[in-house]
Amino acid sequence: MDDFRNLSSEQNAALVIFTFLQADCINTEYCKELISLGKEYDPNCNGPRIDTLDDGDLETDGHLPTSLTIALDGVLPSVQLHRNPEEEAALQRVAEELREIAAQLEENVVAQATQNLRRNILITPCNHWRYYLNREVERVMSWVVGLEHLPYERVIVALTLTLVKGVCEQTPQLLKNLFYTALQYITSSSRAR
């Protein structure tokens, strides 16, 4: 079964995006924005809860408890997406695979694309962000060599999320709007396939 096909659902895509964006969260302001977005995205979120991970460390490999969590200083807001554990695990595997693909992208190419995207979205209204996101993804895809063995749509999603995370780590206050832009971009692209 291909877990990746589930990204056409907005909730599934949102879970994958959250899981991808929270990995290696070291910027405090960025982490706070993730927590705020998590609480806002799911109206059923009951606010922060205290939870401890088995080893006391922040999980950064995509393996999360049964609900989407964003960890910061031991406070874990829970975004309950009310799905079965197998489905959540499948979506988390997708996020992990996307992070592995993103790690294969050349750092200097992604860094330049991130700077271009950030510069463009800082000077334009939100309704144009999807255009700039698409433009940078297409431009990087034309430069990337060595990922031909990977499925094209996965590389596109991994690159999209890498650019979004890069911009949001530099400018955390853009997270909410850029998250929704990426969510719309990914779900519309998945439906078009």
Rank of each mutant, 00 (worst) to 15 (best):
M1W: 10
F4K: 07
R5T: 15
N6Q: 14
S8C: 11
S8K: 13
S8E: 13
E10S: 11
E10V: 07
Q11H: 03
N12P: 07
A13W: 02
A13N: 05
A14S: 02
I17A: 08
T19Q: 01
F20T: 03
Q22P: 10
A23E: 11
A23R: 10
D24N: 12
C25R: 04
C25V: 06
T28V: 08
E29G: 02
E29I: 00
Y30E: 06
G38W: 03
K39V: 02
E40G: 14
Y41C: 04
Y41P: 09
P43V: 03
N44Y: 02
N44K: 08
C45V: 06
G47Q: 09
P48F: 10
P48N: 11
P48C: 12
I50C: 07
D51R: 15
D54W: 07
D55C: 05
D55K: 04
D57E: 13
E59N: 10
D61T: 02
G62W: 02
H63E: 15
H63R: 15
P65A: 12
T66S: 15
L68G: 04
I70N: 03
I70V: 13
G74H: 03
G74M: 00
V75T: 03
L76H: 14
L76E: 10
S78H: 14
S78K: 15
Q80L: 14
L81M: 10
R83I: 13
N84A: 00
N84V: 04
E87A: 09
E88C: 10
E88K: 15
A89M: 06
A90C: 11
A90P: 09
Q92W: 10
Q92N: 15
Q92F: 12
V94R: 00
V94A: 05
A95K: 00
E97Q: 14
E100G: 11
I101R: 08
I101T: 09
A103D: 14
Q104C: 13
Q104V: 13
L105Y: 01
L105D: 02
E107T: 08
V110N: 06
V110F: 04
A111H: 06
N116C: 01
R118D: 11
I121G: 01
T124M: 01
T124E: 07
T124D: 02
P125M: 02
N127M: 12
H128R: 12
H128A: 09
W129V: 07
Y131L: 14
R135A: 11
E136V: 07
V137E: 02
E138A: 14
R139C: 01
V140K: 00
V140T: 08
S142E: 13
V144A: 01
V144K: 03
V145Y: 06
G146F: 00
L147H: 06
E148Q: 13
E148N: 07
H149E: 12
L150H: 11
P151G: 06
E153N: 12
R154P: 07
R154L: 11
V155C: 09
V155W: 09
T160V: 02
V167K: 01
C168E: 12
C168K: 07
C168V: 10
E169A: 06
Q170V: 04
T171E: 14
T171I: 15
T171H: 12
Q173N: 14
Q173L: 12
L174I: 09
L174V: 05
K176I: 02
N177S: 12
L178E: 01
L178G: 10
Y180A: 00
A182Y: 03
A182T: 05
I186K: 05
I186D: 09
S188F: 03
S188I: 05
S189R: 12
S190T: 06
R191N: 08
A192G: 05
R193V: 04
R193H: 03
